[in-house]
């Protein structure tokens, strides 16, 4: 295993020390492993809390700041945070207007956030609403399964709901924006290589030199199928076909297109992929209103990418353009 780390057991704590040192405008609670906006709680503003397993950086701590999250809980690598962490974050961002939990749909995340909300309800009268993201079309949605995974759309939910909260809107409306974004967004990912979990010490799966995994998640889970390596333009088609056949993205105000790197893929390849994504969308008659290209939701050192499309409307575009000032997403301020 080749990583810039000390003891595998200390990866999350060590990285949080680095975040704290790099971003003096954030407040890091090292005991609970929660990263707060320096000015949290903001009185009268809905507090946004997200979190999940570590290994997806910059998500979520890199999105804490004005116009996005108020706090992010960092679990162990690929392991959702525990209820105590989420409860501490919830308390710390409660400015009297309620708290929104943005939870990716994984059994562990959902249960731990639920238990935290139960704790919060028992201890204080903070109103907590949870919105669960589940945008990964690689997973068949069904009442009888764990359902779709929450992936790329989570970044967009954090940005857009964050902007709504920053405008001073009430909890119900902020939650509504979050749900609306989740409902209008779809993602699909692929991997060229497996990631290596520090505590495991070896790649989660073996992938021959001439094959790739289509339909992977963000925890090094193998994908739905293994196919021969293909040129970027075919990869773009393989990712977009299931997205577009799941949700009609034509018409309206176009889409927000998000090409995301999985951690081990450099930016040059992501821009190249973005060109191919745009080409496919053009053929499908879908306009791109806004875009995001970069490694925003990673899977440790996995090489690969995911594509997220969000069907936009006037309001979502306005919220997208609203100021944001976080370590990893910043504009307008």
């Amino acid at each position: 295993m080749k990583k810039l780390i000390n003891d595998p057991a200390d990866v999350v704590a060590d990285a949080l020390r680095g975040m704290a040192a790099a971003h003096p405008d954030l407040r890091v609670d090292h005991e609970n492993r929660v990263v707060f906006r320096g000015d949290a709680p903001r009185q009268g503003k809905v507090g946004l809390v997200s979190g999940g397993g570590s290994g997806h950086e910059p998500m979520h701590a890199g999105f804490v700041g004005l116009g996005m999250l108020d706090a992010a809980c960092a679990g162990e690598v690929f392991t959702s945070p525990v209820p105590d962490q989420v409860a501490a974050a919830t308390r710390g961002v409660d400015g009297g207007a309620g708290v929104l939990h943005i939870v990716k749909n994984y059994t562990g995340d959902v249960m731990n956030f639920e238990m935290a909300a139960e704790l919060a309800a028992a201890e204080t009268d903070t109103e907590v609403v949870a919105v669960v993201t589940d945008d990964d079309v690689a997973v068949k949605d069904s009442l009888y399964t764990a359902g779709r995974r929450g992936v790329g759309v989570t970044v967009l939910v954090e940005k857009l709901a964050g902007a709504a909260a920053e405008e001073g809107r009430p909890l119900a409306e902020v939650a509504d924006v979050a749900r609306r974004v989740n409902a209008a967004g779809r993602s699909m990912g692929m991997a060229l290589t497996s990631c290596t979990v520090p505590a495991a010490g070896r790649p989660t799966f073996d992938l021959p030199d001439d094959e790739m995994e289509i339909g992977i998640g963000i925890h090094g889970e193998p994908g739905r199928r293994r196919v021969p390596l293909a040129p970027a333009r075919e990869v773009a088609e393989m990712l977009l076909e299931p997205v577009l056949s799941d949700l009609d993205m034509t018409g309206g105000d176009g889409v927000i297109a998000f090409v995301n790197g999985m951690g081990g893929t450099p930016l040059i390849e992501l821009y190249l992929m973005y060109a191919e994504v745009v080409a496919v969308l053009e053929k499908a008659g879908i306009g791109v209103a806004r875009n995001l290209v970069g490694s925003y939701m990673t899977s440790l050192d996995m090489a690969g990418c995911s594509v997220t499309l969000l069907k936009a409307d006037d309001e979502l575009l306005r919220l997208w353009d609203a100021p944001v000032r976080t370590p990893s997403l910043r504009w307008g301020v």
Binding site: V82, Y106, M115
Partner: peptide, 12 residues
């Protein structure tokens, strides 16, 4: 366990 495990198995 609830305080230290996380993931699916911690709550379960």
């Amino acid at each position: 366990l609830i305080k230290t495990v996380g993931g699916a198995s911690g709550p379960l």
